[in-house]
Design a protein around this nucleic acid. Sequence first.
DNA 1: CAGACACTTGAATACTTGTTCAAATGTTAA
DNA 2: TTAACATTTGAACAAGTATTCAAGTGTCTG
Lengths: 101, 101
Amino acid sequence: MKPTLARGLDEASLQDLADLFQHLSDPRRLRLLLILSKGEHAVGELSAALGVTISAVSHQLQTLRQARLVACRREGKRILYHLDDVHVEQLVRMGREHVEE
Amino acid sequence: MKPTLARGLDEASLQDLADLFQHLSDPRRLRLLLILSKGEHAVGELSAALGVTISAVSHQLQTLRQARLVACRREGKRILYHLDDVHVEQLVRMGREHVEE
DNA sequence: CAGACACTTGAATACTTGTTCAAATGTTAA
DNA sequence: TTAACATTTGAACAAGTATTCAAGTGTCTG
């Protein structure tokens, strides 16, 4: 096995890591992130694409934003969201490999 | 916007993927998996190492077992658990990179 | 400036998940 | 077979999370 894996992981880091996975643990959020992995989109577009209310998407986006997984910029009336993390796509891709086996 | 945005991942796969991350989204389970990544252990040992009741660990193990992240074998009275998934360590390591930045 | 549009926010409710406790299963040894 | 040990299981409760609804902020257009 790999002894290096657990070394240097204190409770706080473990909590942070768990939090990261927590954000990836919902199919709607995952879909959201997959969509954003292809380019930035406004809240209304995401709402339509996911089939949930604008408010619900907005709440999810705030959560993802606090976790620094997404970021946004205003363009006129609209607010465009995009991925803000290089690891997210990797994580999703890796998880996908697992699931597809 | 359109379904093509999320092309390549149907709802079922997305749910599976979310489920996988869900199992990694708790610090105790993560610690559990880290311990098992170093070798197999009995339920009682895990309970002691994690500081939670045997029952609680057992419940967590059942969940992880259904997700095929761990497997077990009986040895006398004891039941020894071990990791049953190659991707788990990779996922944890990758998540760690993210957290440690 | 008024009104429409795009989105955010807060509080309440509804849903999910985890833990506990007690009872049940399986194993070994006397 | 009985007793002790190791673990599992199910139901109930507690804690955490998500969604909704209604009200609020910020931005553009006429």
